[in-house]
Nucleic acid binder design. Structure first.
Lengths: 241, 241
DNA sequence: CAGTGGTCTAGACCACCTT
DNA sequence: AGGTGGTCTAGACCACTGC
């Protein structure tokens, strides 16, 4: 591991353990450079990591300080890393399974062409899955993916994890995601599969997901009953306001 | 402006203008260092900025490439910067106003104490505002803020912008925000002020907002009719998956 | 004015990709 | 093997804070 990363990990640990208490300053860069037997530039790269993670912040001419909510930030980070790939809140001891409601290949609609930046002649998978958590249905997922970008999708893949297939089997890396979250009235399928009454609102997350290199590979809508899920997000600092 | 930032701005411009086309590589660091008459370390800091913005990505041993969705990322960034402080979609030519429905000071509830990390003895403002866009009601906002952290809030401030008061008048800097987005059935106030029918879902954004130093200063709930708003977000890359 | 973080340098070595 | 990005150095100067 790079030196600056291991120093960042050590400093992060000291913050978690309260050796550098919330709200107080940490030793100055020259002192840290001496302690870790390195140059100030390297210490700065370490502090850049901590600052980017929201654990600390630096003020020119004054010092580097531990944020008062550093504990919370650090907790949240651990939790999100544990449950990568889903935006749901569920514990470690729960089992997620899927039932395939529809799975076929077709040419993309106009919306899909626009979202995935493809032409009418590039076919897409059309997938509808009902997601279960501990045998209880919690979400309906409508997914479209270009067959060119994500080949070799089978029913077997859909029953396990598409993301596993993309990362492990195809060796692709997932990048950014663009999401739109909205509330909606229940539709026919919501009533049928999610047991929605006509007065039960639905929370919908629409997303376009991109690979590392910026290729769009997924356009999807996830719908769930209002009492079965929330969308949680920790928005980083806005340096420019 | 720092040299590395002005170089980053120039490279960003070249990407926007297609001089460095999407999907292709940009000149190597040594070449750029020569062109800009600087050291490779400085070029690297510039590229760090571009990479963090999602415009490009570097592969060790290979080169630095423009992301295929760089245009989209760059567009989104401009749009979010223009409408800072709100998570709403509204154009430049629309006017946002507020009506105060309730405004008083009280001791915090248990939930508020927990969210804002304060004790029962630290009073908070309790604010209910109805937000209008072009004379049409679109959202109901329930806000709690510690009087200690954000002093001198008056009705006048509430009718303009709380954020303006915090940043301009008090000179404080806003940091991260923790949000939970959910769908809900309409309540009494939703029906009264947002003209919800009993079958109209409500989109609720609950948030805890922090200052630069990690102090929580706002705990709020914003509710709007399902057909009056969406929550939009561009989630950055997840390097660790 | 002393102390602190921010930037920049010129060069070095390493790790990795490509051929 | 040659080219590329990643890391690291030792020192310099600058900008800012706070006494």
């Amino acid at each position: 591991m790079a030196k600056y990363l291991s120093i960042a990990a050590e400093l992060s640990k000291r913050i978690r353990e309260g050796i550098y208490p919330a709200g107080e300053s940490i030793p100055d860069q020259k002192t840290l450079a001496n302690e870790f037997n390195t140059s100030r530039m390297t210490i700065q790269k370490s502090l850049d990591v901590l600052n980017a993670e929201g654990l600390s912040y630096s003020i020119q001419g004054s010092g580097t300080y531990v944020k008062k909510n550093a504990n919370f930030i650090s907790d949240f980070k651990v939790r999100s890393d544990q449950y990568v790939g889903t935006t749901q809140l569920f514990g470690k001891n729960h089992k997620v399974t899927s039932k395939i409601i529809d799975f076929h290949i077709s040419n993309p609609t106009d919306d899909e062409q626009k979202a995935l930046k493809i032409t009418r002649n590039q076919p897409v998978y059309n997938i509808i899955r009902l997601r279960y958590i501990d045998e209880s249905a919690y979400a309906l997922e409508y997914t479209t993916m270009p067959t060119e970008v994500i080949p070799r999708v089978t029913e077997d893949v859909l029953l396990k994890s598409i993301y596993q297939h993309i990362q492990k089997t195809l060796g692709l890396t997932i990048g950014a995601a663009y999401r739109t979250i909205s509330a909606d009235k229940p539709e026919h399928f919501d009533r049928k599969y999610l047991a929605c009454e006509s007065s039960d609102p639905v929370l919908q997350v629409q997303q376009i997901v991109y690979l590392d290199d910026g290729t769009a590979f997924e356009f999807s809508h996830t719908r769930q009953r209002f009492d079965k899920g929330k969308y949680v997000i920790l928005e980083p600092d806005h340096p420019n306001q």
